[in-house]
Design a protein around this nucleic acid. Sequence first.
DNA 1: AAAGTTATCCAAAACGTTTTGGATATTAAA
DNA 2: TTTAATATCCAAAACGTTTTGGATAACTTT
Lengths: 337, 337
Amino acid sequence: MKVTLQTLAEKSGFSITTVSRALAGYSDVNEQTRARIKALADELGYVPNQAARRLQSQQSNTIGLVIPLTDDFSDPFFMELLTGVGRQASTYGYDLLISAHPPGDEEMEAYQRLVSGSRVDGMVLARTHINDPRIAYLKDANHPFVVNGRANVDDFPFIDVDGFRSFHMLTEHFIDYGHRDIAYIGCPPDLGYAAARQHGYEASLTDHGIPINQDYIVEGDLTKPGGVAAAQRLLALNQRPSAIIAGNDLMALGAMQVCRQQGLTVGEDIAVAGFDDIPLSSHADPPLTTVRQPIREIGYQLVDMLITLIRGDMLDESQRLIEPTLIIRASSGKPLN
Amino acid sequence: MKVTLQTLAEKSGFSITTVSRALAGYSDVNEQTRARIKALADELGYVPNQAARRLQSQQSNTIGLVIPLTDDFSDPFFMELLTGVGRQASTYGYDLLISAHPPGDEEMEAYQRLVSGSRVDGMVLARTHINDPRIAYLKDANHPFVVNGRANVDDFPFIDVDGFRSFHMLTEHFIDYGHRDIAYIGCPPDLGYAAARQHGYEASLTDHGIPINQDYIVEGDLTKPGGVAAAQRLLALNQRPSAIIAGNDLMALGAMQVCRQQGLTVGEDIAVAGFDDIPLSSHADPPLTTVRQPIREIGYQLVDMLITLIRGDMLDESQRLIEPTLIIRASSGKPLN
DNA sequence: AAAGTTATCCAAAACGTTTTGGATATTAAA
DNA sequence: TTTAATATCCAAAACGTTTTGGATAACTTT
């Protein structure tokens, strides 16, 4: 028993056109008729059919987001991002379409399905790589999209937390506490943000006249075991670092674990910091110093940008760097005297 | 520059009907023409317009999921569920529509938008309450839906981890380790699963002839501070419990914190267990004994059920209880001698 | 009074698909 | 040779909107 414009037209005695225009608020319909039609629509519970609308308007009023599927527990980062994106989308009257796929070919197919099937008007991307094929595809298809995170090129709209600033801040923090032997567990170099982060770390050292010690720079893979392996190498050095900055919290937690195993008390004998502020970090023992990126807020802003693009308007700034927040916890220890 | 059936018809010299039927695999089109048309479609990159399809077929090929928005960090549970649901949906060729809203009126509106706007063919619900208005609405609208978790009534399709079994198992586990003074921090009673869980706990005690001590049963609110408050009450008792079972991991972690503050070593002086197996639990100190529910798997099965309903087929079993997994970690301590 | 405005309405087209109900030509059966 | 069956095709309708391009009547202005 579904109610369409047709139904309303018959019951009200007006034409489909008038009903449609009355409901849409056009000025060429008598206020009295409009009131009558609106009342009738309410009474019968009229809800416009989306498919018909989309067919006619040639847009889906939907934005898409593909989340990469991993075997282990899903990434809280994406949940936050998704929450932000979904929330903001709905304030614009847009729906959010989700697709979960293991990275690789299947993921690319998902993008194609969403984009060329015109299921979505725009896409939100996250976790970009260098030479990301998804970006290439979307640019080529000339389909609106926004990205969280940078790649090696900058000719598309993105929002990123300032990786340089973040690691500059962390390093400053430790230098401020009197450390000079500060190690860095980096990110896989094919990740868009890897370089900026390392530069932030190095720049801070250089600012303070501390030479960059290549032994103190090791690469990690963003997992906890990766952090363990990296920290083991660092602690085996002749002169071990007095502070470790990891490219994310998971690796930092791995590093903390190694420290404990080797009899070092984190926050006293050695300082450790991470990046992300995952929920685990505040509950760790000791709680982990880290940098927080306002993921949900980023989600909001991504949608703002995307909708602007979808509407064909110009973006006032198509690249935004977000200021991160330093969160100092017990893993920093006390300033050395 | 979009390619429609019209385009293919003109270029191939056949009618729109024939092109459509050729592509759809109908037998009333010559194999040779079919081949020609298919080749042409490939060449021009034809992708059927979803909106038109949906309008014609009167279904959206989409399922919906509303996630409740909270102020703090998003719930990993929903991320897992969403991953499972999204994955399975795509194997059926269905899309997944997400809506994020703070619980309450706005949430209900989201359901209405999705359902009566026929944006989705079916809904997946989670975290149900007693007398859940969403269930009432969906039943009333006669719209296909499946639920993760039970409410007080059973006249709708759901999948739930067996709460009775879970807490029975946990209690058995502690009794097995020699405990008799086992406390229970419960869930808010308006949650659908609260009763079953407490029954599981009580039944296990009764099975072993241990009287149920009402002082050992306190209500929690599923948050960590709630666990703290509950544990403080328990530890203030004349005869404090030797083991605490909490209704979820978060409360268990809160309880562990209280124990530590009062000089008790969890895993030696007192045993603690939770439910959920959130990522935090395995990293806690000591790691927390808990019960895991296979959330992603539940997501798969929910979609199976939902699609069956959407197709109008009968469900062979419209209520499923899933067997939980007991995960014993150091917070259980050693068997008392 | 004629011409121009304004307010209010609507028929028909368009969006791109699928389905219905034949039409036509070809082949097989009577 | 006539009739029945089969293979292959297609025009038109339908799905529910929005938009286009007027039509009509009622006022206003010259």
